[in-house]
Design a protein around this nucleic acid. Structure first.
Length: 620
DNA sequence: CAGTATCTGCTTAAATGCGC
DNA sequence: GCGCATTTAAGCAGATACTG
């Protein structure tokens, strides 16, 4: 073999290129290339190993430009090189470091997205302001939907690269908290081996739908499941802080959202409804598929314009003129409502009517629209329902100006996903967390007031269990207000507990507080507890009941659910209010606090009362 | 370690479409 | 026809995770 120390190795470049091009990028290594060079030129390249490897790497990089397919080898070459000890890692500069990991690495799509205006939607934008404390679960879950995708993709890559050293654990950690149901579903997604037939990708709510051009432009995608659309829209809404600060369930549409929803402000509940016109079933047939894009775009354009009507022009103009320029918006009559945004309370009450009417009109204007037909064809089931209740529900829990108690509205849904963490631990008991369902937190048994104890036939119970059982009772006896199921029409038994003829489900917990007492651990306390509690509770409940108690007692004789009797009582007069929800119920919270606080304050000795007092003080 | 943020359970409302 | 899944808000108290 020839000694090549003096040779200019750059002469090997063409050969290296040829070898690289002619080999499987997944298999070839720098060493392989060097070996081939040695064979072809019959030289020993060992003395120049590092140089040659660098050269090979360089060639590889050069070839790789504009040829993304070869990515795998790109990782592979330097990796082998690393093994070969001390080579300067030119490659490491552009090679995604494993540590930068899932988050740091900007996936191609992400980069691309950043260039677009919809960065918020497409990239896995972390919660706008990173808050202190524990990572927002809800948001993490939410972000997860997009985050997880990227992470998953990247993990897959990692798994290909390494032998899956560690990648799994992290993701599992974050998603661990999802609900069993969701988790189950996700598991199926992940391993694809679930026994169930449902697959996220194709069926049900995960079925990809064709987006209208407007929506497609907004979301930078032609197809997407309804679910995903909603997710992304929410991401956008949050990113741009488009939720009404007074009532976060309302979304104040910026001009972009206006092009989609044709509303200045929509309720989150009705978002889906408005989305309907922008979502079209995907045709499966090949031809249809081919034509689909064109058709859809055309249709969508036409439809959206027809839906937009005059306003469309404004939108278009505005979209040129600048972002969020709401002054422009106000030129339009429909959009005039934007001003309402500045004076939240009064005019918003009619929002839902506005939604329905305005949009129904819009939808009905154009009979040819496929998008629309989707929307219109759908039963007014919801609408019927809505009209029945006159949206009382929405207006009822109209913005409580008061400072809110309890858990802060984080702006995320925790509900569904929440249950699992605990459930998991419950079941396998091996979780790293310390929580145990039996004794701690919401599962901690509390001592019930005698009234509640009698009602539930138990001396102790966790708040959670109490609520559960109460709900069971409510359902069993159909005590929910048929007009707004969130309200519970108390029968005489519930009245003895809540001291109200009718309570909002949200406030049930509040009213329960006086009936729940922390369990003392000390031995003596334990001994005395029962007697004390019973005595206290009896006294308290009576004092709480006050005058009304007599009525309750009388009524208990007179019959079940006889609400006419109830109206004799002044407090109970509110029952009538039930028929005219608006004015009086808006103050439900105040009413709760004032009326009941007065009652509570009558008896200072009560421990039950004390709890509430403390509570109230803390509120102030 | 103190302080803060979030989670936990439960319910309701709306819309969707698939599966049972 | 119901359940599922998704999203939001509201109320509550205690546990837990996280930050400084």
């Amino acid at each position: 073999m020839t000694d090549v120390t003096d040779v200019n190795i750059s002469k090997y470049i063409p050969t290296i290129n040829r070898i690289l091009l002619g080999s499987d990028p997944n298999e070839i290594t720098a060493r392989d290339v060097r070996m081939q060079l040695q064979q072809e030129y019959n030289v020993d390249l060992s003395p120049l190993k590092l140089e040659v490897q660098n050269l090979i790497e360089q060639c590889f990089d050069d070839l790789e430009i504009g040829d993304e397919v070869e990515e795998p080898i790109r990782h592979k070459v330097p990796k082998k090189q690393k093994k070969n000890s001390n080579s300067e890692k030119k490659s490491s500069i552009h090679k995604p470091s494993k540590k930068s990991g899932a988050r740091g690495r900007p996936p191609k799509s992400q980069v691309k997205i950043r260039e677009s205006d919809y960065s918020s939607l497409e990239d896995d934008s972390p919660p706008q302001k990173k808050k202190r404390g524990r990572k927002p679960k809800g948001s993490s879950v939410k972000a997860e939907s997009s985050d997880a995708e990227y992470e998953r993709k990247f993990e897959e890559e990692l798994l290909n690269e390494t032998n899956g050293k560690k990648s799994k654990s992290k993701n599992n950690g974050t998603s661990k908290k999802k609900s069993n149901k969701r988790k189950k579903r996700d598991d199926e997604e992940h391993d694809g081996e679930g026994p169930k037939k449902r697959k996220k990708g194709n069926t049900g709510i995960h079925k990809p739908l064709i987006l209208s051009s407007v929506l497609a432009e907004f979301l930078q995608a032609e197809e997407m499941s309804r679910l995903e659309v909603v997710k992304r829209l929410w991401a956008y809404i949050k990113e741009n802080e488009l939720q009404d600060p007074n009532d976060k369930r309302y979304i104040v549409c910026d001009e972009r959202l206006m092009t989609i929803f044709q509303q200045n402000r929509i309720h989150s509940f009705t978002m889906n409804k408005f989305l309907t016109v922008h979502l079209k079933k995907k045709e499966v047939s090949a031809d249809a598929d081919a034509d689909a894009d064109a058709d859809v775009d055309a249709d969508a354009d036409a439809d959206v314009k027809s839906i937009n009507g005059e306003a469309a022009n404004h939108y278009e103009n505005r979209s040129v003129s600048g972002d969020n320029d709401l002054d422009d918006v106000s030129r339009d009559e429909d959009i005039e409502d934007d001003k309402v945004k500045m004076e939240p309370q009064e005019n918003w009450a009619d929002l839902d009517n506005l939604d329905n009417e305005d949009n129904d009109d819009l939808f009905e204007d154009d009979d040819d629209s496929e998008w629309k037909s989707g929307a219109r064809g759908r039963p007014p089931k919801s609408q019927v329902k809505i009209r029945e209740s006159d949206y009382s529900s929405l207006e009822d829990d109209s913005p409580p100006q008061k400072k809110k108690r309890g858990r802060k509205p984080k702006g995320s849904s925790v509900k569904a996903e929440s249950s699992d963490a605990e459930d998991d631990e419950e079941h396998d008991g091996e979780g790293p967390k310390k929580r145990k369902k039996g004794n701690t937190g919401i599962h901690k048994p509390l001592i019930l007031s005698s009234v509640l104890a009698e009602f539930l036939q138990a001396e102790e119970m966790s708040r959670l269990e109490v609520v559960k059982r109460l709900w069971a009772y409510i359902k069993e006896n159909e005590l929910q207000d048929p007009n707004d199921k969130r309200y519970i029409v108390c029968d005489e038994r519930l009245m003895t507990i809540f001291q109200q003829n009718r309570i909002h489900s949200f406030t049930m917990n509040k009213f329960l507080t006086v009936h729940l007492k922390k369990k003392e651990v000390s031995a003596d306390a334990d001994a005395d507890a029962d007697a004390d509690v019973d005595a206290d509770a009896d006294a308290d409940v009576k004092s709480i009941n006050g005058e009304a108690a007599n009525h309750y007692e009388n009524r208990s004789v007179s019959g079940d659910n006889d609400l006419d009797d109830v109206s004799r009582d002044e407090d109970i007069e509110d029952d009538k209010v039930k028929m005219e929800p608006q004015e009086n119920w808006a103050d439900l919270d105040n009413l709760d606090n004032e009326d009941n606080d007065d009652l509570f304050e009558d008896d200072d000795d009560s421990e039950w009362v004390k709890q509430e007092d403390d509570d109230d003080k803390s509120q102030e």
